[in-house]
Computed example of a mutant assay.
Amino acid sequence: MLMNAQNRAARLHYLPGTFRQLSAGDHVVCAVSGQQIPLDMLRYWCPVRQEAYATPEIATKRLLEPA
C-alpha cells in the first residue's frame, strides 16, 4: 500500500551543508517557532543539535544559545 507523504512531517538527519531524508514527508517543524517548513524551502538547520529553523534570524538566535 502506498502512503501519501502530504501533510506529514519528514524525519531528517541533518549534516553540514545537506540533510538525508529518513522517512517520507513534505515538511519539517521549526525547533523554535513550531512553524512547518516545506522541504523545498528548508535552508537553515544545525547538524549538532539536529534541529531545523524557519528563518535565518531564528537560526542565529538559537545557535548563539549554549548547547
Rank of each mutant, 00 (worst) to 15 (best):
N4F: 12
P38W: 02
Y14N: 01
Q21Y: 10
V29P: 05
M41V: 03
Q50F: 10
L42K: 03
P56Y: 00
L63V: 06
K61F: 10
A10C: 09
V29A: 03
C30E: 03
G34P: 04
E65N: 08
M3L: 14
A52P: 04
R20K: 14
R49P: 03
L15H: 14
Y44L: 04
M3K: 14
I37G: 03
R8I: 14
R8N: 10
P56V: 00
D40T: 11
L15D: 07
G34N: 01
G17M: 05
A52E: 04
L64Y: 09
P56D: 00
R8H: 15
G34Q: 01
Q35T: 14
A59F: 08
N7H: 15
L2V: 15
C30I: 03
E51P: 00
S23C: 07
E57V: 05
C46K: 04
D26L: 07
Y14M: 07
Q50N: 06
H27R: 09
N7I: 05
E65L: 13
N4E: 14
G17H: 11
H27S: 03
A24W: 09
F19D: 00
Q36E: 11
P16G: 02
Y44M: 02
D26I: 07
P66Q: 07
F19Q: 06
N7K: 14
E65F: 09
Q50H: 09
P16K: 11
R11N: 11
A54I: 04
R62I: 01
